[in-house]
Design a binder for these strands. Structure first.
Lengths: 211, 211
DNA sequence: TGTAACGAAACGAACGACCGTTCTTTATCC
DNA sequence: GGATAAAGAACGGTCGTTCGTTTCGTTACA
């Protein structure tokens, strides 16, 4: 197999998949025809079938590409976390989560397509035991971080997962669901307020008696 | 127009829409054919077109029905909130959010279908200025709740919106995305731990100096 | 009270368009 | 010259929708 050909072929596939991604995201998988992809990519239908066996093969190849990139991102993210429950570190975490969402919004859009049109067949298991995975990845760092002060007793794995999800959904609302200011203010302020709430609580002293 | 006929017609429409909902949710909108809906509902294609002008009309009617029910739920929810930042009240809030998600999961599934296949055309504006709407609906209750103790200074509207979203996404993960224990533990424990984190913070005393 | 009339409800065949895929042909590279 | 890339016509099937027809329930009138 000649080198130039495989390079060209790869370039063609990238163009086809880029076009497919664009139309999938705008109209969904079943709302996109091969003719749409052909037109958007500039290749003929016949030629697309020289590169892919079926329409679903394009979709799957697309997902695999994104999964690989996202796995990298996830590893970077996990490795980059230090003394997680320190407020300054939580702010770093927030912007890392921002990066995960904003640098690959199409990954999440594809995931929603898959949930809606394929019952999550191609992303299956990506979110199972999320808290456990978090705990496993962070390992001892999680517990050692709680020993740096007077830890209040919340389960550390639960806490970091909840905080992660809070930021994740905040940025997802922005980028994927086009909500401008999900918490009614700037990112900077929202992040710092969430961190204050999470670390110091809403009340300066234990809450008042009811009534 | 005869009374019995309109009653029968309404009954037929409900059956058709129920069948459409089921197939839409399993295969998405574009993945569902009128023949699918006909078969699932027990009505012929021809007859379905006596009741609806187009396939999209079924979809829209379905959404309108759900929107009406959800508007009710939302109003009940808002009206039911009292001294919101009291931990006991936050727990009530958590279970109210649970109810919103678990009693109408198909509303949220339809919303995801709309996001994926119609660019959110039919649900447009449902999530804009979410924090502002929250503040407007809760009104003075929000601020008076902060005067019941030593409020830490977090913006009340931001706080209640963030807490709402935390619970909302927690239960959504369970019901719509089939994640068993999103935070690795029971609902009861997850809710109480989140509330502890939100009200008292992760640390009993202000966090330690870094390093 | 019986019945003619009429519109709604129901059906499934039929229509034209478009679907995913295959086939045939031509051009392009090692 | 033999594989690969490229193109687009063609195929069988399915799509959303329309059509013609029959059945049913109500109402108007004798």
């Amino acid at each position: 197999m000649p080198a130039a050909n495989t390079r060209d072929a790869e370039r063609a596939k990238k163009k086809i998949e880029a076009a497919a991604l664009k139309t999938f995201i705008h109209q969904g998988y079943h709302g996109t025809s091969m003719r749409d992809i052909a037109q958007a990519s500039g290749y003929s239908i016949g030629n697309i079938y020289n590169h892919y066996k079926t329409k679903e093969a394009i979709y799957i190849s697309l997902i695999k590409r994104f999964e690989a990139r996202m796995a990298e991102k996830r590893n970077e993210f996990m490795a980059g976390l230090g003394d997680v429950f320190d407020p300054a570190e939580l702010e770093r975490l927030a912007w890392s989560v921002h990066d995960i969402v904003f640098s690959m919004p199409d990954y999440w859009r594809l995931m929603y397509i898959d949930v809606v049109e394929f019952r999550n067949r191609h992303f299956a298991g990506s979110f199972h035991q999320f808290a456990k995975k978090m705990e496993a990845a962070l390992g001892e760092r999680l517990h050692s971080s709680t020993r740096r002060g007077a830890w209040g007793g919340v389960d550390p794995a639960l806490a970091i997962t909840a905080i992660y999800l809070q930021f994740f959904n905040y940025f997802l609302l922005q980028k994927v669901f086009n909500v401008k200011e999900p918490l009614g203010t700037s990112d900077q302020k929202a992040v710092s307020q969430i961190i204050q709430m999470m670390t110091r609580g809403l009340w300066d002293r234990p809450g008042p008696a009811k009534g």
